[in-house]
Amino acid sequence: MGSFMGSLGEAAGLIMALDADLLEIIGLSLRVTLTAVAAACLIGLPLGAVVGALRFPGRSLAGLVLNALMGLPPVVVGLMVYMMLSATGPLGVLGLLYTPTAMIIAQTILVTPIVAALTRQVVEDLHTDYAEQFASLEVRPFDRVVALLWDARLSLLTVALAGFGRAVAEVGAVIIVGGNINHVTRVMTTTIALETSKGNLEFALALGVVLLVIALVVNGAVMTFRASAARMTYA
């Protein structure tokens, strides 16, 4: 308990001081995670909407697979990406291993199923509302998907946040493909893992608190935006 309070104090100190090293680590965490979430949304939103709104053979199987992929262990994703990007792997020539790009790729793979599966649920629910009107107007599949994504946009912000939550807290995949190289691929979670294995438990926990604060700030910003956007469109 004493060491927990000590960690809180240390976390406050870290946030106050914000030295350049910590800022670099926070910045890289945000850069990797936000890029991965953006990429995952780019793929997962349309994918989820298609599965949620359109009828096609294999649709329920697709939904099942998306849901199952949400449970992908980060370490497995990390290994898959490592094998792809390794010098002996099929994409080795790109030289991406141990770079932030590799971490972004791994997190995108990790987050896309979450975004897609949750989007499918949100869109499917909205589509049950809209289905008859769409059928009556004979809205084409493409236009349906676009309209549903647009109308569900506020709920989909929460979906993106869920993806952000998973990505920002993830360590198993990024430590394998990033290598936790100081000043290059060291992010919040890998730093926490490192400090833990150095036995600096209080400091590691303090970093955890800082990570939590970052997640709070990002969530708060998005939810504030969502609330004001909601006032505009739904009143």
């Binding site: 909205l126 509302d129 008859e132 009107q133 107007l137 236009d143 309209a147 109308d151 469109t233």
Partner: peptide, 23 residues
């Protein structure tokens, strides 16, 4: 068709009209 429970898109009044016309 106008349904028993009218279906309103989560948009403005004008955007609802515009959507139907565009489609």
């Amino acid at each position: 068709m106008v349904f028993q429970r009218p279906v309103m898109l989560r948009r403005s009044v004008l955007a609802n009209l515009r959507f139907a016309l565009a489609v």
